[in-house]
Amino acid sequence: MLRDELVTVFGGSGFVGKYVVRELARRGYRIRVATRRPHLAHELKVMGVVGQVQLVQANLRVEASVDRAVEGASAVVNLVGVLAEGGRQTFSRLHSMGAETVARAAAKAGAKRFIQISAIGADQDSDSRYAATKGEGEALVKAAFKTATILRPSIIFGTEDAFFNRFAGMASLPFVMALPLIGGGKTRFQPVWAGDVADAVANAIQTPATAGKTYELGGPKVYSFKELMEFILTTIDRKRFLIPVPFPIASALGLMGELSSIIPLVDPFLTRDQVTQLKSDNVVAPRAKGIEDLGVTPQTVEAIVPAYLVPFRDKGQFHQRAAG
């Protein structure tokens, strides 16, 4: 049975957004997905019953389109973000100014709940532009929508993620003999499954007590970067060297990655800002409210990731591990 409430989801056509839309549809909400290119997101419409999921065109740089997208919504979720800048899609425009535009529009439209997806490490004073603009976005959202709920996930994994898939893809290339351990591979992460993030979003919408609070979302285990690389290699049964790369050299590689992105349709393999982020651990703070406080028991990396890394094994699903 469909609920009366309408939830507008900005960034609903992205990696995490698809999980959020699917979970909200499962719970019976009517969903309006606000995206720059609705003609490329038709698969979202089949995540609910006929008419449950609506696609609308909206651009965070065009305030009128944002106002139209939130009209009549009882809750608004903002998932918009980028890991690397490109063209007009800058950290400042999306993470800071864009988040403020959505929060201001939601408040003006009379929405009861606002959920802002930020990131662990968000800090206006951070040396990383990604983390700094995420922190700026949080402050601007709270100023525009006083009872906004902020969710800060660690790295998010899932079928279409840009972490496990990327490194497994690199390791499966025949000419790649090694994977890099930036900064020695000591940086710690607390990966969280996209499905659990979606549960957290839906629970936050349904739980009035979460209003005005900030939660840090991490999985049940903490891993070093090196441990995650070892897990990937074991999972896809490939042998590759793990080479420590000092931060200064990694920054030089990041500059090369940024220059490569000048070529149309090429995403940078690494940026200097990402190297800066890797200088700090990405784990839930000791006293922070966590995903369990939102009623979610998180899944482990080991329970989810192997199933979608199968294509990176030699011969895929027909791969046979060597005896012993």
Rank of each mutant, 00 (worst) to 15 (best):
D293H: 11
T235N: 08
F10R: 07
L151P: 01
R272A: 06
Q89S: 03
Y308C: 02
G212Y: 08
R37D: 12
V56K: 13
Q57G: 10
Q89V: 00
F231T: 01
A162V: 02
P286D: 04
I304P: 01
S96L: 04
F163Q: 06
G185E: 07
P180E: 14
F247K: 09
R37G: 09
T271G: 11
L270Q: 08
V66A: 15
D314N: 03
V222D: 01
R287Y: 13
F241E: 10
R68H: 12
D127E: 13
I182F: 12
H42A: 12
Q206I: 04
M1D: 08
S65F: 05
M1P: 03
S74M: 08
E85I: 02
I155Q: 15
A58G: 09
L24K: 00
E43H: 10
L2G: 07
E63H: 04
F225E: 01
K221G: 01
T210H: 14
N59A: 09
R104C: 14
M170T: 00
A148L: 03
L151V: 00
A64C: 11
V50W: 04
S251M: 10
V283H: 09
T207S: 14
V245D: 11
N165Q: 01
G48Q: 07
R93L: 14
F163M: 08
Y29R: 06
L181I: 00
A250L: 11
Q277C: 11
E138C: 04
G135K: 05
A58H: 09
Q299W: 03
G121F: 04
W193Y: 15
V9F: 13
A119L: 05
K112T: 15
R321H: 15
I291H: 02
A209T: 10
E227A: 09
P191F: 07
V21M: 02
L217G: 15
A171K: 07
V80P: 07
V77Q: 05
L55Q: 07
L79S: 07
T149G: 10
T234D: 15
